[in-house]
Design a protein around this nucleic acid. Structure first.
Lengths: 345, 345
DNA sequence: TTGTATGCGTTATCAG
DNA sequence: CTGATAACGCATACAA
């Protein structure tokens, strides 16, 4: 494995200069910089993370907190972050974090002490804890928020556009001819739930000309059992919807089950759409039309921000609010409504 | 942060002695050892991973390969490993690994070069790749296998007893009075599937006195749609089972759906049991009786083996085959069969 | 059984 | 703009 000394020799400069180039410091003549870069790639040089960390006291790894092992969202994001870090030549160090415990502050400090990470990504629900922000700021750790409920000034964030995605998938249903559509919403405290519901209502309003027309909304709270009840209620109402848009794929799965119990077939009798692009959406049958969370794009954007925020300490920190485009995945759970219901308002 | 020097001063010895104590070397007087240990805990000393790694060229972290982000098994194990490592004062470095690509060897070597891990845990399906074993052995990386299909001599392994667990959950069903029980098996190439099926058949045989009596087996292949079909077939057969034991929680969920379509209620008309202890088992309703994989115990055992295999290089390597006890989680998906079917053989 | 001195690959100081 | 040299915390050859 080549070291900084080998690079310095090859480029005919001192190791300090090589170090300067690596760290994107300003005062280096551009030709010198070029020579060093050349030498580095010729030798396939890769700096020793250990030596770097030992000297600077800071790890190059990116830290991430994990609070709920059974959360599909967190584990998907975790995977995407690993991938993004790997692509960017960095590493991800993840720590368990129990936000409910009173020891959380010590827990966090132990994590920072041991890992020496100097930058982190905060995912929901950690990204909404003011105390957590303060603790990080106090220790001078840079961080980026993923899908925060509220933005925070001076801190960059990355998110998808939940409202718009909800609008789009509702429009898809409308385009198929559905006029009476149910929505099983998520937990009202969850920012994304509110956005998804609003997007749904916006699309319904645009189609009918009046807010609320044709829309049937229930609070599912992201809970399977509750969603099951809500779906059953909707499907047994006198004027039952011909399509249901659930705010999560799990709740969409619950809707499948409710439909099954009532002898209704998806998508013949009832169309179902979900949200998240969870594994279950591919697994269940018929496969579920849903909004895929852009985990990869979100992770890449977060790593990218962290890469840029670190070296350039010249002047003030440039923060940004990054919206990552999503995809609607059309699968087999949505069809046209029965003809006699198609144009009924 | 205290360093080895602070500890040495406090204990009144040289740093070399402290180093010896840390690494569990033999030639240290036990009183000296005690003094050093005391000083370490007084100062809340924690060795710098960076310095250690720089000096030795090896990281203290434990490596793990991840191949399928949507695999609940892998992500659960991942989480358990993080926890276990954290408890043992070690770190987990996980790498993506695409076993299908031809570049896998370079991918693995890049991982080893960059992370410098000297020990790893291999989870399914990686633990069954002979080429992977060879590659690791070649680079002198110690590893432990988790739930391998076949044991490998000279390599330790950790697993749960799938056969026994399947037998036990089947016995639970038998005890409730079920005599005709269906089993939706996993993929036949998967070692665990075979064990689970065998355990099921063993229990049925023990109860009836004859192999196969009362048992209805279908190949579900761990696939939702296929399991759905299998369950529908079973439930519409003339002599339908009063209980179904699915080899995975996902397939149990498919069974719920099949039951729903046929107007059958769980557990009143049909009892369902699963296997894995996946998040979905708690989420679906009624909550699913299942075998919980002992992820935590498996991870702890693996880390423990790795902790012991490393320092004691005196003599030959002691390998072990560790079976971790599991738990049957009784929830709400199993009940007594209708009276008239209870004793029917 | 214990201690001393050296070097691992970086970054930072300070002088050119 | 560039370079010589001293740390950083630990492990180990070598010495006692």
């Amino acid at each position: 494995m080549p070291t900084i000394i080998d690079v310095a020799k090859k480029a005919g400069v001192s190791i300090k200069t090589v170090s300067r180039v690596m760290n994107n410091e300003a005062r280096v003549r551009s030709e010198t910089r070029r020579k060093v870069r050349q030498a580095m790639s010729d030798l396939d040089y890769r700096p020793s993370a250990a030596a770097r960390q030992m000297r600077s006291g800071k790890s190059t790894a990116i830290g991430m907190l994990y609070s709920d092992p059974s959360s599909g969202y967190q584990s998907q994001l975790n995977h995407a972050m690993m991938q993004a870090c790997s692509d960017a030549g960095r590493y991800l160090t993840v720590g368990l974090f129990d936000e409910t415990k009173r020891q959380w502050k010590r827990q966090l400090e132990a994590f920072l002490d041991r890992t020496k990470v100097s930058c982190m990504v905060l995912v929901p629900p950690m990204c909404d804890s003011r105390a957590l922000h303060d603790c990080l700021a106090e220790r001078d750790v840079k961080y980026v928020l993923i899908s925060p409920s509220r933005e925070k000034s001076g801190v960059s964030s990355v998110a998808m556009d939940d409202k718009r995605a909800a609008r789009e998938i509702t429009e898809h249903l409308l385009q198929l001819g559905h006029r009476r559509i149910g929505h099983i919403a998520g937990h009202p405290d969850h920012a994304a739930s509110v956005l998804r519901r609003t997007g749904f209502l916006d699309a319904m309003e645009a189609a009918s000309g009046r807010r609320g027309t044709g829309a049937v909304v229930s609070e599912g709270r992201f809970d399977f059992r509750r969603a099951l009840e809500m779906a059953e209620t909707m499907l047994t109402a006198e004027a039952r919807p011909t399509a249901i848009f659930a705010a999560s794929d799990e709740m969409a799965a619950a809707t499948y089950m409710a439909a099954g119990r009532l002898g209704l077939s998806v998508p013949r009798d009832i169309s179902v759409a979900g949200f998240d692009g969870a594994p279950i959406a591919e697994i269940i049958w018929p496969s579920l039309t849903t909004v895929a969370q852009p985990y990869g794009g979100i992770a890449r954007a977060a790593v990218d921000i962290l890469n840029r925020v670190e070296p350039g300490e010249d002047g003030e920190i440039h923060t940004e609010k990054n919206i990552v485009p999503h995809n609607i995945i059309i699968r087999n759970s949505c069809g046209k409504p029965p003809r006699h219901l198609r144009e009924a308002k």
